[in-house]
Design a protein around this nucleic acid. Structure first.
Lengths: 109, 109
DNA sequence: GCAAGTATTCAGTGTTACTATGTACCAGTA
DNA sequence: TACTGGTACATAGTAACACTGAATACTTGC
C-alpha cells in the first residue's frame, strides 16, 4: 500500500471498523475480507486484529466467542453504548477535518 | 486537542500544508497561525516546523531565507514540481479514503 | 534591563499501521 | 498417514508522525 495511505489510515481505520460494527456485529477475518473487497487492498490481517484488541480493551465493543464450522472459533465483536458514543465523536472529528480539506482543494489558499 | 484529531492528522496534516503552499509560499509561523485560525486550535508549533523540515528533506519544497522586520529571519517555503506531483497523489489518496468513509456513514453496513 | 511578540529548533514520548511469523482447526486428497 | 489449503486469531519488532516542553534568537517598547 502507498505510504500516504498507511499514514492516513492512522486514526481513521479505527473509525472505519467501528462504523462497520455499528451496522452489524462481525469478526476479524470477516472485517479484513470486507476491507480488501472495498479496495483497501493490502490491509494486513495483523493490523485488524491488533485494532480489535485495542478497542476491546477500551471497552468500546462486546465480544462473544462463536464456534466456526471451519477453523478455530470466531471472536464476534459488536458495538456497545460506549462504542456508539465514541463513533459519534469520530464522525464529528471527521466532518470537521473533511470540510477544511475540501475547502483547501476547491478554494486554493 | 482531542486524541482522535491528533491521530487523524497523521498523514493529512502534511497534505494540508502542501495544499496551503500550492496557493502561495509561506513560512512556518504564518502557517501555524493560519491553521489555528481555521479551527485547528491547538496544533503545536513544533509539529509544523518538524513537518516543514521533513518535506524539505524530501525535496518537495524550495526554501528561501527572508529577513523579518520583527524577529529572526523567516524561512519561506514554496512548492516545487516534485511537491506538486506529491500533492496530486495526496488528493487521489484522500479522495479514495473520503469516499469509502462517506459511504460508511450514509450506507451503514 | 526586562517583558512580550515574532520565529525557529530539538530531544523525548505515545500511538498506530506494517512486516513477518506462529499457532490452531478442519476438509479434501493422494 | 501425510500433505495441502482455507479459515481464524495472535504477537514481537519496526517505522512514521504529532505532541510536549523546552531552548534559542531578534526586535520593539516600557
Amino acid at each position: 500500500m502507498g505510504k500516504q495511505m498507511t499514514e492516513m489510515l492512522k486514526g481513521t481505520l479505527e473509525g472505519i471498523v467501528l462504523a462497520i460494527l455499528s451496522g452489524r456485529s462481525a469478526y476479524g477475518y470477516e472485517i479484513t475480507a470486507w476491507l480488501r473487497d472495498q479496495g483497501f487492498s493490502d490491509i494486513a490481517e495483523g493490523t485488524v486484529y491488533a485494532l480489535l484488541v485495542r478497542i476491546e480493551k477500551r471497552g468500546l465493543v462486546d465480544v462473544e466467542k462463536v464456534p466456526s464450522e471451519k477453523g478455530p472459533p470466531r471472536k464476534v465483536y459488536s458495538l456497545n453504548a460506549q462504542g456508539r458514543e465514541y463513533l459519534e465523536e469520530f464522525w464529528r472529528t471527521w466532518s470537521f477535518l473533511a470540510e477544511r480539506i475540501e475547502q483547501l482543494r476547491t478554494g486554493g489558499r
